[in-house]
Write a protein that binds this DNA or RNA. Sequence first.
RNA 1: UGCCUCAUGGUGUAACGGUAGCACAGCAGACUCUGGAUCUGCUUGUUUAGGUUCAAAUCCUAAUGAGGCAACCA
Length: 574
Amino acid sequence: MSDETKATETDTGRHFLKQWIAEDVAAGKTGGQVVTRFPPEPNGYIHIGHAKAICIDFGMAQAFGGQCNLRMDDTNPSKESDEYAESIKEDIRWLGFDWGDGFYSAADLFDRMYEIAENLIRSGHAYVCALTQEQWKEYRGVPTSPGKESPTRNRAPEENLALFRRMRDGEFADGTLCLRAKIDMASPNIHFRDPVIYRIMHVPHYHAGEKWCVYPMYDFAHPIEDAFEGVTHSMCTLEFEVHRPLYDWVIDRMDEMGLLVVRGGVKIRPQQREFARLNLSYTVMSKRKLLQLVQERRVEGWDDPRMPTVCGLRRRGYTPEAIRDFCERIGVSKYESETDVALLEYCLRDDLNRRALRRMAVLNPLKVVIDNYPEGQVEYAEVQNNPEDPSAGTRRVPFGREVWVERDDFMEVPEKKFFRLAPGQEVRLRGACLFTCTGVIKDAAGAVVELHGTYDPASKGGNAADGRKIKGTVHWVSAAHAVPVPVRLYDRLFTVPDPLGDDTRDFLSFLNPDSLKTVAAYGEPALAEARPGERFQFERLGYFCADARESKPGAPVFNRTVTLKDSWAKEVKK
RNA sequence: UGCCUCAUGGUGUAACGGUAGCACAGCAGACUCUGGAUCUGCUUGUUUAGGUUCAAAUCCUAAUGAGGCAACCA
């Protein structure tokens, strides 16, 4: 055993893909460079499940000093568009990954794929089949019993070739003929029962234009793409596991044709391995379901901040760092699991706690009048921008006789261990002074509309002159300087961990009716200058992000990204 | 009733024949000008049954459970 191998084996926490690649590197199978690829089909927006795959594909390449290509797996023009392709690029860049000059499109290989198909026909490995889809269904058989051969299975190669060329030349209508690989109609693996490798589709391609009316199928195209790119390690999700023998079959045929790339004197034979896709609690991940949410207007669009799409998370205020950290922490395995969204939220808070500037805002305002504070007087509280990061500096927050506080921070009859505002109870107004509530004003219906009280002039800045300890601290906003800001309070999209887990109920019935509440909040003046996309911690409340779409200069709209942990709320529940 | 794959605390993972560990969640406490953060401690686990071995989460067999495969989708 070489020292190199030894060293990697003492390295703990290596998941099976990393081990697999390490072994191949040690065995010299990569020709000096590990090459991976992320191969999305540009038929929709990518979500956090794709982010996991991206982190694996790019991450493995990085770990071995290799290259990860971005390849549009665009072999079905009826579903694909340039708009999707562009959004995918944008999202991957935002996540922090770089494919360098390794950008590819399957469509750029159509000529070569077509040639390979002709070669397959010549060597008797493929034939043109005229069975209708209904007929084929019957011929193919079911997993539990073998299929039977197509009547044209043993047609002469020259005839097949002529027919295939006529298919290419547009002489036949969609679905009338197709090209099948000739493998094994009795195989227990359905994908070996003479799979279709080319179909007729009179549809222009967003990237290849009008050139083709026959397009290759995934199982044929994917290994070819990998092989031509010199991909050494092709990682995908579990549902492709049963396709692997077919992947290898195509690679074998390419090998026979002498088409495998040689790098560093080594013939590169791409290999596929599979890992479990990400499932996240309280959301859905299927493209179809997400599309349904969009089309039925259950959400406002693909980038609705409640969506698990990368653009949705971005708009919600998630950071790429938090998402990458999350993908690192969930690990990689072949076990189909469901990850608790609490872990994602932890990663976000962990990141934002270190970086987000603190601001004060009151979401549900209650007026407080400080009776012994001079009318018209304004002082400034010097407050840290981020206690976790002194280099973020301080700011001056105006303070006056009337301030807004959070309605939830007051109880006329305080529960045990409620350390906030209550008659006769002294609290700290964050960064300003100590204050004691002495009076409560109510409306005719008995609802509290205003608090009165007095402050301790010897507590400017927030500390008592005599050193007495004050347990409760509340945030506030000066009424005279408050900036009105719309704030959108987002919560989980679904009310149950697995909305798809109940066969008797439609997942839509689990939609959380309270997943969005909009409130008119008051913010401290500095908030007016928030730039679109800028993230803050609103002290004692949570992390918020100026909406990149609806914020205007001087008039930000905030999205709640995630709340702060709230141990008082837990206390109340008991 | 075919083939493929998987199974470790509540959740996600590590341990690669030799002391079952980490993280999230939960609970308790300390500290705190955010009931945040931080720090300390705690609870909880190898699906089952056989076999191989001095020794099994790990290897073998079977059972059970879960997922995938029967688009001219990817």
